[in-house]
Design a protein around this nucleic acid. Sequence first.
DNA 1: GAGATGATCTTA
DNA 2: AAGATCATCTCC
Length: 249
Amino acid sequence: MPISTLARLTKLAPLPRSFYSRDPRLVARELLGKLLIRRGGPRPASCAEWGEGEDAGAECENGEYGEPSLLAGRIVEAEAYLGVTDPGAHAYCGLTARNAVLFGPPGHAYVYFIYGNHYCTNVNCQPAGDAGCVLLRALEPVCGFRSMAALRGIRGFASDGALRPVQLRQLTSGPGRLSQALGITRERDNAKDLCSPSSDLYIAGDGSPVPEISATPRINVTRAPCDEWRFVIPGNPFVSGPRTARALK
DNA sequence: GAGATGATCTTA
DNA sequence: AAGATCATCTCC
């Protein structure tokens, strides 16, 4: 990645609130190919263990003392959840303390803790009162590989911290993984306005071409199995789920 | 690569 | 008790 990429990424504006104020199935489709961006986060303690070498994302770790200045990944998999009418959605049971963000205005982050181990990151959709949202399920890392690996607790195989293809995929392939890779937690990010220019977490388009899109049933949603509201960029190796050795290359 | 299992939070 | 998950372990 050229040095200019970071400069370009830092200038991208967050998607407007009107983007999210629509049917989550439409929002989920159109989020594919967009960039999820974390900027200015604190340097994770584990970064201190990393050497001085370069890796694929090193150009973005150019803050003072090597502090990561920007983490970014391209959205390659997302799922739509409707509001109180969707048996698979958290909003199905109505307003609770946990899901209150879903009933508020669009463009805000809904982050929840799942299975006692992981965070999942969603964007609230539709006008206030309608509880639809989109779950971000996988990213293709674009910027900040080394910091993501540190946040994920993944060590590269070489002295310079370079990542194997398998390790690269482990950074952000899955809703819990991508949340950890960008340092997203409920405490830090739930209810955050992703449309604010001052937000340290937001989604932006970078003018790249609209990708091919496939629809499938949602993952691990047993209460409403008859849907096709999971959207992926077919063939992208960062889409979650089992990979063949061939696909990993 | 595939299948089983544990972690241990939140809600019903 | 089950869940919008993942790492680790086992045996291919």
